[in-house]
Design a protein around this nucleic acid. Sequence first.
DNA 1: TAGTGTTGGTCACAAATTGATACTACTCTA
DNA 2: TAGAGTAGTATCAATTTGTGACCAACACTA
Lengths: 124, 124
Amino acid sequence: MTLNDIEFPTPSEDADCRPVREILDRIADKWSLYIFVALKDGPVRFNALRRQIDGISQRMLTITLRQLERDGLISRTHFPTIPPRVDYELTAVGRSLLAPVMALVTWADSNRHVIEEARRQYDH
Amino acid sequence: MTLNDIEFPTPSEDADCRPVREILDRIADKWSLYIFVALKDGPVRFNALRRQIDGISQRMLTITLRQLERDGLISRTHFPTIPPRVDYELTAVGRSLLAPVMALVTWADSNRHVIEEARRQYDH
DNA sequence: TAGTGTTGGTCACAAATTGATACTACTCTA
DNA sequence: TAGAGTAGTATCAATTTGTGACCAACACTA
């Protein structure tokens, strides 16, 4: 059996894929993946996330966190202290997404040299 | 052991993550995922891809295909016929990415009802 | 006691990315 | 001979994202 013969589970092909697209578009946007990785070990505060995710703006962090909260993937806990404290944490559903997400991250990590070499060849 | 205790392989934490970010940004952009899914069963022609991936513009399809080709994830075969024919196909490296990608798609498919319900609750 | 820093945001505007439309040159079909 | 299909590119509009200012309420420092 070669690589070509591997069959992947096809998620109910007939089901209209609009909702699946909507979900994938949320996960596979510019920042969601990194928020997931940043939250994998437990709750993290807003500004800690901002420091951890290099290059994200406060605006996009707020927007992306709100969307993930709306999807029920993360939870937001507000402590009314001074200065305020807001913790973000993966929900049970969010944690179940962690396995595929980390698989992607791990793939990227183990294949970066191959990809860098391919780019050099292409640009040459 | 609760869900919180599950440990995910942490891809060499010390390695600088810029190259990994570059790769993830390519995979997790607006269209790459869908191109991967569209190519999972074998070579597909340019316009067939365009018809299969709902909403993609010719411009973005061209651009995204070129980037994936540059990364060595897909190959481009041009048949100098009239009318021209161009086949796109996953490379061996590209196929190795299919497993994590399909895991993500499958997750999205099996969790869409949960997410839709979460959205209703949030918007309420 | 005035200045600086921290918290988690929001707002308006600028910059970057993506989309829409038109165009190419050629062939096949009705 | 008009219309559609092939795989694109070029130009401009629309959408998305980034930038910097601002907020209030307090702690710490000089």
